[in-house]
Simulated assay, not measured.
Amino acid sequence: MSVDIINILNFFEKSFSDITRQYEWDNSNRQIIVDYGKVKKVALALDPTKQVIKKAIDKGCELLITHHPLFFGKINSITKGNLLSDKIIVAIQNKLNIASYHTNLDLADFSLNDYLAEKLDAQVIDGFIKEGSEKYYKFVVYTPVGYENKIIEAFDLSGAGQIGNYKKCTFSTIGTGTFEPGNNTKPFIGEHGVFEEVKEARIETIVPEKNLSRLVKNVINAHPYEEVAYDIYPIEISKTYSLGRICKLNTKTDLKSFISHISQKLGCAIKYNFLDDNLIFDEFAVVTGSGASLWKHCKQKGIKVFLTGDLKHHDALDAKEEGVVILDAGHYSTEKIFMEYIQKVLETKFGIEVITIDEEESIKIWR
């Protein structure tokens, strides 16, 4: 089975995650797009290394999706013999499209942190560091009775009507619409100069600000009337998004047991700044990848245990003096596992073949 590549890209940028949430310094997006055609096979990896790109090509993949971007800043030249240039040249020569979704996945509603919590049999109870919020609007449109389903489909296509895990959420009432077509109109119902009364449905839904213009366009295209009557109201709700998660275990545990649990679930070694044998806990914070410098937020929230990666010397010392235990499971190990989740999501949604490319951890530990 094949699928249009744009459908996969739009899924990552507008549905599964939101490209507008990425940090300003980031470059989550389409890195190399050779062909906006059909895709039969997708490869997933954490990093777009030479080996990963070669494996994706050898496996016959038309699209490689990575978490870390191929490049961040502007490119002044593409010159053979330069590492980045060689990757670009090889990808283009072999018609391999590459897209990278980085901090927008870190800030997604279901992020790497949520999946890691699931792997550790923990429940997410809150966001860790609030990063922003999305404004919402109430959208109301009037349509002749019998066309409600077409309008609701337009809502859904536009990313409107989503409440939690429910989609196509609307409310409708029936009333009477009145109008009189003028001489230069092409009325769907009625005649020029004749006053009309029509049974109409008033359909309302909610929509995030980012999807509002798309919603208006799609509703107008789906609507039978020449002139579409609709209302837009700002509403006092918003969706907050966060970096990291605060999690709760099913039962209280000690540090050594928790470290053993993490190591077993992730298959990795754990570094730490200190152990408190008297500490019994069931809550911890997590930031996948490189988050050790954020330990001070644990202090502010009264959290004693912080699971993350990329622990540095001074953060380890300062956190220890403040009584915060930092558990470093590694940048690689805390993020690589998300590829297995994405693989299942893409296979289920698009019905295409998806492979996760084996990678070597960049930092080795002598055991």
Rank of each mutant, 00 (worst) to 15 (best):
S293W: 02
S100A: 14
T170E: 07
S17R: 12
K186C: 10
H331C: 10
D276K: 03
P187E: 06
D86H: 06
G351Q: 11
Q31I: 01
V324N: 13
E227R: 08
V219N: 09
I235Q: 10
E13Y: 10
F139E: 02
I174N: 09
V198P: 00
E148N: 11
Y272F: 14
D315G: 04
L63H: 00
G127D: 07
G309V: 02
C169L: 09
L70I: 07
E360H: 11
V124G: 04
N76L: 06
T170P: 05
D310I: 09
D47N: 14
L275G: 03
I125T: 04
L212E: 09
D86K: 07
T49V: 11
S15E: 15
L307F: 03
N273G: 07
F110V: 14
V207E: 08
I235A: 08
G351V: 09
P224D: 10
L96N: 03
H313W: 12
V345F: 06
I89G: 01
S333V: 08
T143M: 07
K217Y: 13
I152F: 10
E13A: 09
I33E: 05
Y272M: 09
E322I: 04
I65R: 01
L105W: 02
A222C: 12
K312M: 08
I98A: 06
Y233N: 11
D126H: 09
T288H: 00
L317C: 08
Q343E: 15
F72Y: 14
V286Q: 00
D277A: 10
K87F: 01
P48Y: 01
V42Y: 06
D254Q: 08
L157S: 15
K265A: 13
P187Y: 02
L307Q: 00
E283F: 10
H261V: 01
E62F: 02
I33T: 04
K320S: 15
N76W: 03
V286G: 01
D358S: 12
E24H: 05
V124L: 03
N94F: 08
S242A: 12
S77I: 06
G146Q: 11
L212I: 08
F281D: 11
E131L: 12
T308V: 05
N250A: 13
I280K: 15
F338Q: 12
V194H: 01
V354P: 05
L327E: 08
Q93Y: 06
D26M: 10
A99C: 14
Q22S: 04
K217T: 09
I88D: 03
A108Q: 07
Q343N: 14
K252F: 10
L249G: 03
L83T: 13
N104L: 09
